[in-house]
């Protein structure tokens, strides 16, 4: 469980996050939704400690990691798998080396054990036969999948995905959503997904927080989203024509 309390973050004069408080449960797909520039990436990076909040706390199962010394922070981070917005695969390594990278550091496995585990992870995300390719030779969707495989390589307790399906075609997009959803259930991870894709929201949004100009204006799940009273969220939903039709037919 990840608990956020009264989180504030600004860059100079610009206040990006304002008083965010929310809880993320284990084993479900928690979502942060909102328009571009609403502060989703900043919120995720603050949660995982890549950015320091101005005030407020983030606790992982009751433990506040922001105050930890660097060595312990590093140890804790091994339990967090992250998929970055643009995949952030290492250009200097092949697909399979990317997935093996965390294993090289944190396990004493033999090379064949590492390869076996990496192949298993790649199979889970449906990337087969591209082990020797470099990230630059892959399509965007493939890169995201390899990114997921790398994130789950060491069975993390927490999975953080920044826009896992932006820039993908609808079909691949759904596949990736279902993949993340399935892995979350199977391994009991606490997953936070950051998206503005209405499809994903309706497909796998178990616990949704709507971010608008740095404020968390609404919280609920994919079933209650159409009953919202929040006019900003209403606008956000109606930007998608299918969702608008559902909204109007209710």
């Amino acid at each position: 469980m990840i608990k956020i309390e009264h989180l504030y973050k600004s860059f100079g004069e610009v206040k990006v996050l304002k008083d965010i408080s929310i809880e993320y449960r284990q084993g479900v797909c928690n979502m942060i939704i909102g328009a571009s520039g609403s502060g989703k990436t900043v919120l995720l990076k603050t949660i995982i400690g890549l950015m320091e909040p101005d005030s407020g706390t983030v606790t992982f199962n009751g433990q506040d990691i922001s105050g930890l010394p660097y060595a312990e922070k590093k140890r804790f981070r091994q339990h967090i798998g992250v998929l970055f917005q643009n995949s952030a695969l290492f250009d200097f390594a092949t697909v399979i080396e990317n997935v093996m990278f965390p294993m090289d550091f944190f396990t004493d496995w033999s090379r064949s054990e590492k390869i076996k585990r990496a192949k298993y992870c790649l199979e889970r995300v449906n990337v087969v036969g591209s082990e020797k390719k470099y990230p630059g030779e892959l399509s965007g969707g493939m890169q995201k999948r390899v990114g997921i495989a790398r994130a789950i390589a060491l069975n993390p307790k927490y999975l953080i995905c920044d826009e896992p399906n932006s820039g993908l075609d609808p079909e691949t997009s759904i596949l990736i959503d279902q993949l993340i959803h399935g892995l979350t259930r199977e391994f009991g991870m606490t997953t936070i997904i950051n998206t503005h894709d209405m499809n994903s929201i309706l497909e796998i949004g178990d616990n949704i927080g709507f971010l608008h100009q740095g404020r968390m204006l609404w919280q609920g799940d994919r079933h209650s989203i159409f009953d919202t009273e929040c006019s900003e969220l209403h606008k956000f939903i109606c930007a998608n024509s299918l969702a608008r039709n559902i909204m109007e037919s209710r």
Partner: peptide
């Protein structure tokens, strides 16, 4: 391209 953040987030 966030690769440095990715390394950092692995705990390295």
């Amino acid at each position: 391209s966030d690769q440095i953040d990715a390394i950092e987030m692995m705990g390295v």
